[in-house]
């Protein structure tokens, strides 16, 4: 087995890299794939929180490279899904604690046992980014329909294109607000795709459910009724190679529409 190594990156902070990582990883695992997530944000780790695994971490990636433990010992299994593992970042060290070469070796080692290795990249374009990208052959660039996020995504795309190892990169547009797009207050999905001229792999609507799911340490893909959860599930399917149409976000997402949807689902089940 030789797993795919996908780095999830964005340039700008706070656009939803870690959330994306947690959700795509969980969705892939739910689809029966063996998945390991690597948090490379040394000193600012958060992926463990989003997965609700913060109390289970014994060893970190730094312990692995400094040979205080075996790689397999450092992998933390997810609570719900045995297909899913996390290799946590060290919280007390900085970006220099792991080198590009070391990360590359870890990815190569993990490729033998897992279908997917998702690398959570820190914000910025410095060494942390270089490290995270080192072992990857694919990338997902997360951005939002905001100017600063798009500009930073463009920088990241430029850097990714310069890397021979990265064979493909795709764009994930996060925190899309259909109402604002409708009123011409926000750039549309088409605008961003055209400006960055990158292939789209997912459109994730802004969803307050993300906040509660983060608070609970339970990724939103586990909630089948959440729109953002469905959107992330679709991203995972596209990664696997399924041809899934993008969600129609234009539809009314008001309370009334939700009630309607609920009832139509009930009727659907009875039939």
């Amino acid at each position: 087995m030789s797993g795919r190594v996908i780095v999830i990156t964005s340039g700008k902070g706070g656009v939803g890299k870690t959330t994306t990582n947690a959700n795509i990883g969980t969705a892939l695992a739910r689809a029966g794939k063996k998945v390991v997530m690597i948090d490379t944000d040394l000193g600012l780790r958060n992926l463990d929180l989003l997965l609700g695994l913060e109390n289970r971490i014994v060893y970190t990636i730094v312990d692995v490279v400094e040979e205080r433990c075996k790689l397999k010992q450092a992998l933390v299994k997810d609570k719900k899904n045995p297909n899913l593992c996390l290799l946590a970042a060290a919280q007390t060290r900085d970006k220099t604690a792991v080198t590009e070469e070391q990360l590359k070796n870890i990815c190569e080692e993990l490729q033998k046992d897992f279908d997917f290795i998702l690398v959570d990249c820190p914000a910025g374009i410095e060494q942390g980014f270089q490290n995270a990208v080192a072992g990857a052959t694919e990338a997902i660039v997360v951005t939002t329909p905001e100017m600063s996020a798009v500009r930073d995504a463009d920088r990241i795309i430029g850097l990714l294109e310069a890397k021979e190892e990265i064979k493909s990169y795709k764009l994930l547009l996060n925190r899309v607000r259909p109402n604002l797009i409708k009123s011409n207050d926000m750039m549309s999905v088409e605008d961003v795709v055209e400006i960055l001229s990158a292939e789209l792999i997912g459109i994730i609507p802004e969803d307050t459910g993300i906040i509660t799911s983060t608070n609970k340490g339970d990724p939103i893909v586990n909630d089948e009724n959440a729109l953002a959860g469905q959107a992330y599930n679709n991203v995972a399917k596209r990664i696997i190679g399924e041809d899934v149409p993008f969600l129609n976000l234009e539809e009314d997402t008001g309370v009334l529409a939700k009630v309607k949807k609920f009832f139509s689902k009930m009727i659907g089940k009875e039939n």
């Binding site: 905001e146 100017m147 798009v150 500009r151 463009d154 920088r155 430029g158 797009i181 011409n184 207050d185 926000m186 750039m187 549309s188 605008d191 400006i195």
Partner: peptide, 19 residues
């Protein structure tokens, strides 16, 4: 000019310069 168009146009110019 709406906010969206302003954003698109400003971004186009700034990205040309960045690139």
């Amino acid at each position: 000019e709406n906010a969206k168009d302003t954003a698109v146009n400003r971004l186009r110019v700034v990205l040309m310069q960045d690139r």
